[in-house]
Design a binder for these strands. Sequence first.
DNA 1: CTCCCCATGTAACTGGTTACATGATTCA
DNA 2: TGAATCATGTAACCAGTTACATGGGGAG
Lengths: 176, 176
Amino acid sequence: MRKRSQTELAVLGALSLAPMSGYRVRAEILSTLGHFWAESFGQIYPTLARLEAAGLVARDGNALYVLTEPGRLRLVELLREAPESSPPRNGVLLRLFFGRELGIDGCLELFDQMEREVQEKLRALAEIRAELDPGDPDERFALITVSAGEHSGRATLAWIAESRAALTVPPMRPKV
Amino acid sequence: MRKRSQTELAVLGALSLAPMSGYRVRAEILSTLGHFWAESFGQIYPTLARLEAAGLVARDGNALYVLTEPGRLRLVELLREAPESSPPRNGVLLRLFFGRELGIDGCLELFDQMEREVQEKLRALAEIRAELDPGDPDERFALITVSAGEHSGRATLAWIAESRAALTVPPMRPKV
DNA sequence: CTCCCCATGTAACTGGTTACATGATTCA
DNA sequence: TGAATCATGTAACCAGTTACATGGGGAG
């Protein structure tokens, strides 16, 4: 699957929620998918133009983009394709791995900064969760993505606590 | 920080471990940093050429690349820069979010596939961990990165179990 | 009337992958 | 001798960001 298709997928998906302008598509992706997905203006408009040329979306009376029937079929097709995982690139782990060069203090600063970011993220997720209705079958899917972020965030906090201890307590050779 | 610098960082970091060929740099990044970092040939060779032109690395008698003193300083400088987090793009969450279009069965397949991948990853991490010496102060840093993967993997498994249940048990409205 | 948000787009640039091309060395 | 691995590189392509350019409409 080309990466291109994943942007198409995000745009078609956004339009499956409601007809909206390109500007709104971007706002929707930012606010609703923001904690696990990102698209920039420079991608969204050309993608919309392509999708329109292919008849997968159309403009309604108010010039809003709407998903056409072929568009919905294409969306389902893309949803069934294997999710593409971008090659991992974790800047924090890269730095920690070379912690010998960076120094313990530098590592601890990384932990502090990361801890603040994760806590901030968990706060944001709690807000999103508060607005979702667990009883609504359609919103279960959004809840699952929120839950993913929460699990991941809590795991990161636990890892930070554990790793901070491993760095500050002097290492012991296991007794022979 | 330009993304460019992160590739430089990975390459300089690899050469801080030992002098090696470009081919080895790639192999080292693949095997040692592989679970949280990726570089392709197409990046590594041009980067090495740039680094050599800048005097940050040099060729030794066996034509292996070695880190020069300016190179080591540059490495520390890069390590101290703020880690760049690439914009989040989680293909699985993107698909789950549109689970209404994908269907419950499609979601469950996503979980199955992801579960297998995570279990495979945890197995690979266990192997790496087994080869590391917890008493060696230098290897603590590698252990921390392994631990990050393990925490993350276990969190993902817990999330999958929870989410599978949320999708298969019919949703209940909370009692009033 | 000015500022901010909505709205649409483009061009230049950067970063990164993939496929290709080439050749040396080693080992069965 | 032929396959596998080590080794170095390039060219074409793709994806994505950023900055820029433009303008309408509403609020204060």
